[in-house]
């Protein structure tokens, strides 16, 4: 259920679906996202530039030359988007991961916090069927859930300035894969050689919200010889 709409600066709004982060809430967000995307495509509303779904919110950006926030809020409130049907074309994708200590930068932090050995941490990570909640931060980067509860941990207080492409990180009940070198504050546990984003492909982003991801452990040697299609 859409709980609250707030302004973000003068050309953004946030549609908040509550604090719960689970698949049910996320699907409600995706419905509004689809509705806005369709409305923009069919020119039922003008001036909307971007619509970014996350676990429990949809953020909308607009051009203040064409439309004001109160007009968009009115538009959302006067339409019933909850009946939008979500397509069920979701796929299951296996992603190779190497947990070698060269790539698992935050092993010590995690071992201290979780009181588990790194082997136990990776075993738990490999066992999980991850749901793709959203794509973003940088192009094609997936946000996956849910981790086993014993792996929950906060993000770093000071984000790293550079994290290498392919790094796999965890924070709270979520797991992510950095698709480009970028700054970031997640606990890094390994690395994948698989390209998740390619602008020359029709589907620029390999994963889409609603897909399922399983990790498969590979050695450093396998990582180094891996070839993307």
């Amino acid at each position: 259920m859409l709980k609250k709409i707030s302004n973000i600066g003068d050309c953004g709004i946030s549609c908040d679906f509550g604090d719960e982060v689970n698949k049910k809430t996320n699907k409600e967000v995706i419905k509004l996202f689809n509705f806005i995307q369709e409305s923009v495509k069919n020119e039922k509303i003008k001036g909307i530039l971007n619509y970014t779904p996350s676990y429990n919110k949809l953020i909308i950006n607009f051009d203040l030359v064409d439309i004001k926030s109160n007009e968009i809020i009115e538009f959302i409130k006067s339409n019933d988007f909850s009946k939008t049907i979500l397509s069920e074309k979701n796929k299951i994708i296996e992603i190779p991961i190497c947990y070698d200590e060269e790539f698992a930068l935050d092993v010590k932090r995690l071992e201290e916090k979780t009181k588990l050995t790194f082997k136990e941490i990776t075993e738990s990570h490999l066992k999980t069927d991850f749901f793709v909640y959203m794509i973003g931060f940088v192009p094609g980067q997936p946000f996956l859930g849910d981790l086993n509860k014993n792996l929950y941990h906060d993000r770093l207080d000071t984000p790293r300035v550079k994290i290498k492409k392919g790094s796999v990180g965890i924070v709270e009940k979520f797991c992510t894969i950095y698709t480009f070198e970028s700054p970031g504050g997640w606990n890094i546990i390994g690395k994948t050689p698989l390209d998740l984003f390619n602008i020359n492909k029709k589907n620029t982003s390999l994963l889409l919200p609603g897909d399922t991801v399983k990790f498969k452990s590979i050695t450093k040697k396998e990582l180094l010889s891996f070839k993307n299609e």
Binding site: T52, S54, I59, D157, E172, G185
Partner: peptide, 19 residues
């Protein structure tokens, strides 16, 4: 809380990490 549930960002937002 030092963290929030990750959410969409708009240009000009001022975020404050744990430090």
């Amino acid at each position: 809380s030092k963290n929030i549930k990750s959410e969409g960002i708009t240009k000009g937002s001022i975020q404050v990490p744990g430090d």
